[in-house]
Every structure is written in C-alpha cells, then in structure tokens.
Design a protein around this nucleic acid. Structure first.
Lengths: 150, 150
DNA sequence: TTCAAAGTTAACGTTGACGTTAGCTTTCTA
DNA sequence: TAGAAAGCTAACGTCAACGTTAACTTTGAA
C-alpha cells in the first residue's frame, strides 16, 4: 500500500520555511525526492517526504550540519525506511530472503545514530555552559547598571 | 596599565583552530584587531584579544551566528570593556565625567545579552527535544536489531 | 650574522547553498 | 473552458567566509 503523494512543492516549501528552489536543490543532491508525480510531471510529495524535508531543515538549522553530512544521515534512515516498506509489501516470511541486509542496515543506522547522539550531548553541555556564562554576565551587567545609577 | 600584546598571529590562530587568513579577515570586518604591533609591523595579540577570538569562534560554531550578527554582539561587549579600561586609567571620580554614557552602554549590553539568552534557552530546549528523539530512535533500532537476529 | 620560518599586503579564486531569470507547460478555480 | 497561479528545466548570478598565490619583509634561533 503505497502512501499517497499529495503535496505540491510549494506547500512543502512553505511548511518547511524554504523556497521551492531549495527543495529542487535538495533533490539534485539526492537528499529527498518526491515519491510521486502528477500526470503532467509536477512533483508530488507524501507525508513521509514532507517529514524528511523537515528533518533536513532541523539538522541544518538546529544542529548546524552541512548538506553533505546530512545526506549521510538521511540516506541511512531512508534505506531503512525502504526496507521496512518492502517488508510490509511482500509477506513477512517471503521477506526472510534478506535478513542479513536488514541486520547490516540496522547496524549502520545504530552507528550513525550513536555518533549523532554523542555529538548532540557534547553540544548540549557546551551550550549549557555557554548559557550559564550568559547568565553570569547578565547578573554582572545589572550590578553595574545599579552602580552607575547612583 | 595596558595589557601586553605578546601573541603572534599564528599562535592565536592555532589556539582558535583557524587560519591566519581568518584572523586577518575578522580584523577586516572589524571583529577583532590586535592591540599591538611589533616594531616591524607584525600583529601582536593580547590575552583579551585572544579571548575575543575564541568567543567569536564559539558564537559562530556553537551558536551558529554569522559574522555580521557576531559583530553586533562583540562590538557592544568591546565598547563596555574599553569603558572599564578608561575608568581604570583616569580616577574613579574624574571618570564621573560620563556617567550617562556608561548607563547607555550597560543598558545596551543588557539588552543584547537578554536577547541572546532567550535565543539560547529556546535553542537548548529544541536541542533537548531533538536528543530525546534520537534516544527514542536508538531504542527502536536496538529492538529491531534483536528482532532481526532471531 | 645568517637564513628558514613566520608575517605582511593585495589581489584573485573557491565553495556551499541557494537566488534569479527565461521560456515554456500544467493545474486549478471561477 | 479561460487564464491566473503554480510548476518545470536549464542556466547564470550571488554572497559569505574564507583559501591561495605572489612578491616582499620581519623575526628569532643557531
């Protein structure tokens, strides 16, 4: 049961806060492609596609990765998603065909995920320190403001 | 008592993990300038200069600001530092000359600092959510790995 | 004192991440 | 069923943040 691809490129772009050009650029780089097309050849995105775009933006904006690093991450996730879809289509027993491939992909996903988590933890603690410094600075400034007022 | 400017550009660059070109570029943009020069005209950075470079890198790499945004922040901080230095040089009473200027600068610093703190808090909580998602994903993958092994 | 290493200015080059424009086609809504 | 709005491809443009090169000078250890 293929998920229906109903969003137009402009809708997904608006939802993600980017331009349509950006989505075509992501596609060019192999980051996300629409899972369908209209009869006339216009891109149609599914909910999964849309979610992937949002994830890319999160990795880019919040985490600060470049599109190349992001590609590594989402590529692994996408391969895993595809495998899951396959499993859903052909029967579970029939799917037993490639248990090794699944193990490989899951192992890969775990590795990438773990690396990412470590980086995020590190970044988080650095950010906490940074915020604490800001708070200290804030207190300092306010003392100085009081001092200056007299 | 002016702080001595002893670091060569290469040393500061190494400490900050950037190239010397980058430091000259920052200078070109008005972000940080060495507070001294050798007799022959070579840049000499003080500890304060060095700290400013490190702060710029932190704002850039950790927080994700661009050099223009960073300039706004460090410019305000630097103005305040200069004022403090002035106060240290001319006597505290004599310094009473411009209490209004100090109040303005401190108010400005407080405003910028507060904005920055709010942004950081928001970013921090988004990052926490992101990390929680990663953790959930990790658990999921590990369950799936176990499943696949049987 | 020498001389390799480091620094200087000035200018042009590069790269990632899109923006913009042109010319044409599809979609949708009134 | 018009026609404005949205999409399509292809190609060139832009901008920040440096990298690189050239031609020359200063520094500092041997």
């Amino acid at each position: 049961m293929a998920e229906e691809a109903r969003y137009r490129i402009g809708e997904v772009a608006a939802a993600a806060g980017v331009s349509t050009r950006t989505l075509r650029y992501y596609e060019e780089l192999g980051l996300v492609s629409p899972s369908g097309y209209s009869p006339g050849g216009a891109r149609r995105y599914s909910d999964t596609d849309r979610a992937r775009v949002l994830r890319i933006r999160e990795l880019q904006e919040l985490v600060g990765f470049n599109l190349d690093e992001i590609k590594t991450i989402v590529a692994a996730e996408n391969r895993l998603d595809e495998l899951r879809t396959e499993f859903a289509v052909i029967s579970n027993v029939e799917a037993g065909r490639s248990p090794q491939r699944e193990q490989e992909l899951v192992a890969e996903a775990i590795e990438i995920n773990d690396r990412l988590r470590e980086e995020m933890k590190a970044k988080l603690s650095r950010l906490e320190t940074f915020l604490a410094d800001l708070d200290a600075r804030a207190a300092l400034y306010r003392r100085r403001a009081k001092q200056a007022k007299r």
